[in-house]
Computed example of a mutant assay.
Amino acid sequence: MSDAVRSWMEKYTAAWTTNEPDDIRALFTEEAVYATRPHDQDPWRGREQIVDRWLVERDEPDEWTFDWTLLGNDGGLAFVQGFTHYLGDRPSYDNLWVIRLEPDGRASEFTE
């Protein structure tokens, strides 16, 4: 498994747990694009908008569990299968994430 992808996923999960703006901000480049679905017509653009919209859509840490598997990576492009189980009556999700990592370890593109 790519150490860079593992490190980024660990930081992503930590940010998802804390919902701290600096933890979220540290994941993405200044001009990053975060798409909440493929072909997203309104992706989150730029690190500050990503932080703002993440916090609006935030999940609380006691509302979910998450497991992931690296399916592959090619240079800076990683493919991750993630499974999010939401507690209570919320649906669970089996996702394919596409993450473009830059040499500094931050994502410039992320698609759920």
Rank of each mutant, 00 (worst) to 15 (best):
F83Q: 12
Y93W: 04
W16M: 15
D3I: 01
E63S: 15
M1F: 04
E48N: 02
V80H: 09
M9D: 00
H39E: 15
G88I: 10
R6I: 08
D74H: 10
D62H: 11
L96M: 11
F110K: 04
W8A: 01
I50D: 04
R100P: 00
T18F: 11
P21C: 11
W16G: 09
F79E: 05
G72W: 09
F110Y: 07
D104N: 08
A4M: 13
L87G: 12
D23P: 02
D52R: 12
E31V: 05
S2N: 13
N95R: 15
R100V: 08
A4E: 07
D59H: 05
D59I: 06
R58K: 14
E10P: 00
E109P: 00
D3P: 06
W44Y: 13
D23F: 07
S108Y: 03
R106A: 08
G76P: 05
R106Y: 00
L55H: 06
W68T: 03
E60L: 10
D89V: 03
E31W: 14
T65M: 09
R37T: 12
R53F: 07
W44H: 05
F83S: 12
L70Y: 06
E48P: 01
Q49Y: 12
L55N: 02
W16P: 02
D3A: 10
D62G: 12
E20N: 15
T29Y: 00
E112V: 02
S108A: 14
L71P: 03
T18Y: 14
D23T: 00
T111E: 11
P21T: 06
L96R: 13
L96K: 14
D59T: 06
T36P: 03
S92Y: 03
D94M: 15
T18K: 13
A107N: 13
A14I: 00
Q41S: 07
T13S: 10
A14K: 11
G75I: 04
D67S: 10
P103C: 08
P103T: 08
V98E: 09
G82V: 00
R58A: 14
W8E: 08
A15M: 06
R106T: 05
P21S: 02
T111I: 03
Y93H: 05
R37I: 07
T18M: 10
L71W: 06
